[in-house]
């Protein structure tokens, strides 16, 4: 008996190919049944996320299943097998088990230590169970993987600290404001990063979103996307009086907000805290605004600096994570050997 994994991920394949090979969640039971039939495996599970497509299998005996699985993966998605040959990895145990433990722990993720993958592995396992593709080996394997993922997160700092610009901005907002659901966001401009940050804040349940832009049409389009409303660009100062978070992401070549405007707005706001995020390059909010009391101004370098520091902290934890994974791997292998 051999536990194997065949797959590709963000390290080995571009997003276009990953998209092409991703499994439709509604067709997973069918795909699992096909793998068992065609590749002659006793147990199988499919982990298909935006960053990876992986087929986990239990092979009763080695009998050319690697080739059969590659062909299955390619042909199911209408791709020639030779097109993906170089993009695929194929691991047998203990590497296959180690790989799953690393994936579940977030060590193989695009964003090191992200926790979403734990839920995705849990979901892949549940779907395989539901499709009747899991036996005693995979029950033990996936439960051990989920346990390892949790242990790595609780015993190390691999998941601590935001590591993307938008998540740093959201976390900072959480450190400034008591209840983000009562706060109002003003998005100036329609830059991609700005919209991403607004979406992150929206996901956190921010109260209301206003959008302003030099072009009314673009403001309207962004407002519709984020379920917000349009605010006139020539009345930024007035809007600022009723806004708590400002996200500026424009291509303007001048300051759209000056110290004086902000100072006047702060008096009108009775000094309620104001969080300004300037993602524009060149900056569109006068940097001196950050010196005003109760005003917190972050530009793209500040946010990237924090994200990078947090990432360095996470990287330092990798060694400890690997040690936990090796311990769990040894334990799992010895248990499965006993059962065998």
């Amino acid at each position: 008996m051999e536990i194997s994994v065949l797959g590709l991920n963000h390290h080995t394949a571009p997003v276009e190919l990953r998209e092409q090979l991703a499994f439709d969640p509604n067709r997973l039971p069918e795909a699992l049944a096909m793998i068992r039939q065609r590749a002659k495996v006793s147990e199988c599970a499919i982990l298909s996320t935006c960053n990876r497509v992986e087929l986990y299998t239990v092979l009763p005996e080695m009998n050319g299943q690697a080739r059969a699985l590659k062909q299955f993966l390619a042909r199911t998605h209408g791709v020639a097998p030779e097109m993906i040959e170089d993009r695929l990895y194929w691991h047998l145990q203990p590497d296959s088990i180690r790989h799953l433990f690393r994936v579940t722990s977030g060590l193989d993720s695009m964003v090191l230590g992200e926790s979403e993958i734990l839920g995705q592995v849990r979901s892949a396992y549940a779907q395989a169970v539901e499709a009747g593709a899991v036996g005693s080996v995979f029950h033990r394997l996936f439960q051990a993987a989920l346990r390892t993922g949790k242990a790595v997160r609780s015993q190390t700092g691999i998941g601590r600290g935001a590591v993307s610009v938008s998540s740093v901005a959201v976390e900072l907002a959480g450190r400034i404001f008591r209840d983000i659901r009562t706060k109002r966001v003003l998005a100036i401009g329609s830059g991609h990063m700005g919209q991403l940050t607004v979406q992150c804040l929206k996901a956190q349940g921010v109260g209301e979103i206003w959008v302003t832009n030099r072009s009314d049409e673009r403001a309207q389009a962004v407002a519709e996307k984020v379920a917000g409303r349009v605010a006139p660009i020539d009345r930024i100062e007035e809007t600022l009086r009723e806004t708590d978070i400002v996200i500026c992401s424009t291509a303007a070549d001048r300051f759209l907000l000056t110290v004086e405007q902000t100072r006047r707005a702060m008096v009108a706001r009775r000094q309620r805290p104001l969080f300004l995020i300037d993602i524009s390059v060149p900056r569109n909010l006068d940097p001196r605004i950050g010196q005003l009391e109760n005003v917190y101004l972050y530009d793209i370098d500040d946010l990237e600096g924090i994200a990078s520091t947090n990432l360095q902290t996470r990287l330092k934890e990798v060694e400890t994570c690997n040690a936990i994974i090796e311990t769990q791997l040894e334990e799992f292998v010895s248990r499965v050997s006993c059962v065998r």
Binding site: R160, I176, D302, G305
Partner: peptide
């Protein structure tokens, strides 16, 4: 302490547990 860290853009502002500034002020 926390306000100083946020103002100085110190990454420690996001570490550990802390009430938000508004909550502490209140």
């Amino acid at each position: 302490v926390q306000e100083g860290r946020i103002k100085r853009k110190d990454p420690r502002a996001l570490r550990g547990l802390s009430l938000p500034l508004e909550g502490l002020d209140r």
